[in-house]
Design a protein around this nucleic acid. Structure first.
Lengths: 202, 202
DNA sequence: CGCAACAATAAAACGCTGTTTAATTAAAGT
DNA sequence: ACTTTAATTAAACAGCGTTTTATTGTTGCG
């Protein structure tokens, strides 16, 4: 068969990506296969490979969409221009919130690894860089005298810390009594870390 | 064929687990298959399934071994009885060190998920609990007046934070200039967090 | 308009996977 | 010694991602 009259190539991509995302709202990626996505989207398996390059690259496109949604979700918290410390809290909480709402898609961002022959496209790393830059700017406002190295360090400590706590929440590995919630942990991290960091010399 | 004269059932398990761990020192799980492990260990694929239950459970046993090694590695840092704050630093650095030395096995601990029909054995969660308890004890010594809830919170903030930074290091997602190392981030996290936490009231 | 070139898609083949089943045989129990 | 049990293999199975082959709709050109 050849090009179908009811679908253009980019319609295929849109439908397939939407179908994959929809399935990821209910199932982890380990329980989803290219063939199953193809069946539900109404295409053959080979068509998806032809269009995306491979199942791996298809998943990478899903990750790109998720990262864009995540960035939008985080930026939304900055709309009413909160002061820097408050902004950091809100961004972190939004990060946790997004991860808990879209667990499987969020996990996919970090679990997904390309083969050695498949280079990571530049636009992917760029998306992650952008998140860092946002945080670095906020921390800079919070402590104008800080050196570049101090800013980079603090940014990565906070981002790493928030990320780690979020991982534990998503995987339900907190092993704490139920009145201890991820949001409390994030608040504690940011409050205490910033308290000491902004006070230290320089 | 029946039981082989050159191998008892537990010899099979030992050889297979050792072979799997050995391969994980060089390759990520995604590039290792039950059949390949079986080939290299000199058994049939079915024999491994019969002995371990499934490929998933085999990997779970690998994780158990890794967790034991990790616990031993961490406890080793406490042998000369350092003061609590120093102990926390050393444990965290040992955690990072272990993860970087055995990347694929360490990743497997957190990436591995059992199917819905395969319950997590109790001994597995117990192993993780033990790590928490260790940290909680140290924090308790550091701030004797702290409530249980405060201790649980701080423990999980620190563990989550160290874990998150370690993840970024292992996956090379730090996006920082090369003179910023994971160990520096961990020091910064613990120093600043503890500084403020121990000083806060109660 | 007709026809060649192209590109999108399907269908089938391939080699791999983890698991299941059947058959075989060594060890253990009596 | 004979039965039973259990470990192991080999083969069969269904599913996977990918590759190849074949078909056919679309596009562009004379």
């Amino acid at each position: 068969m050849a090009r179908r009259s009811d679908s253009s190539p980019q319609e295929l991509q849109e439908r397939v990506l939407a179908q994959t995302c929809a399935m990821l709202e209910e199932l982890p990626v380990s329980q989803i296969s290219l063939r199953e996505v193809a069946r539900r989207a109404g295409y053959s398996a080979g068509a998806l490979v032809h269009s995306f390059g491979s199942w791996n690259y298809l998943l990478l496109r899903v990750n790109a969409e998720t990262l864009d949604e995540l960035a939008a979700h985080l930026n939304q918290t900055l709309e009413n221009k909160p002061e820097p410390a408050r902004a950091l809290h809100q961004i972190a909480q939004a990060y946790l919130d997004f991860a808990l709402t879209h667990r499987n898609r969020w996990r996919l961002i970090f679990e997904h690894k390309l083969g050695p022959q498949e280079p990571l496209p530049e636009w992917h790393n760029q998306r992650i860089q952008n998140l860092f830059t946002l945080l670095e700017r906020l921390l800079g406002e919070l402590k104008p005298g800080a050196t570049d190295k101090q800013l980079q360090t603090a940014t990565r400590v906070l981002w790493g810390g928030v990320h780690g706590i979020t991982v534990l929440c998503v995987d339900e590995k907190l092993f704490a009594e139920p009145d201890i919630q991820g949001s409390d942990l994030i608040d504690s991290l940011i409050n205490n870390y910033l308290q000491s960091w902004t006070a230290s010399q320089a």
